[in-house]
């Protein structure tokens, strides 16, 4: 699968999802206050325009698949 590293629109603190490591379990989606995560059967990405970088998804992912991207680099 193509790696899609996304960057939030606000551009301050960055959240990355590593889709090649994701289990598509939905835990992060359930806690996202902005409904900013799109999750299909085997595809996941952050909807840039909605994400506020609140990091709740990072805190709840059981297998460390969403991470802070301190560099803020858009891949």
């Amino acid at each position: 699968m193509e790696l899609k590293y996304r960057q939030a629109k606000t551009g301050k603190l960055m959240i990355d999802i590593l889709p090649d490591k994701c289990d598509f379990c939905g835990c992060c989606v359930g806690v996202c206050p902005e409904d900013a995560i799109e999750l299909k059967e085997a595809e996941i990405y952050i909807i840039d325009e909605r994400c506020t970088n609140c990091a709740k998804c990072v805190w709840s992912c059981p297998i460390e698949v969403i991470k802070f991207n301190k560099n803020g680099v858009l891949f």
Binding site: G26, C27, V29, G30, D35, C61, P62
Partner: peptide
């Protein structure tokens, strides 16, 4: 399921506080 997005689209507050969400493996 846990994502509960459909309810949000209908205007219901379905977000779970991350402290109430049990992260599981």
């Amino acid at each position: 399921g846990v994502e509960s997005r459909v309810g949000r689209w209908a205007g219901l507050k379905t977000v779970t506080d991350f402290r109430d969400m049990e992260s599981a493996v």
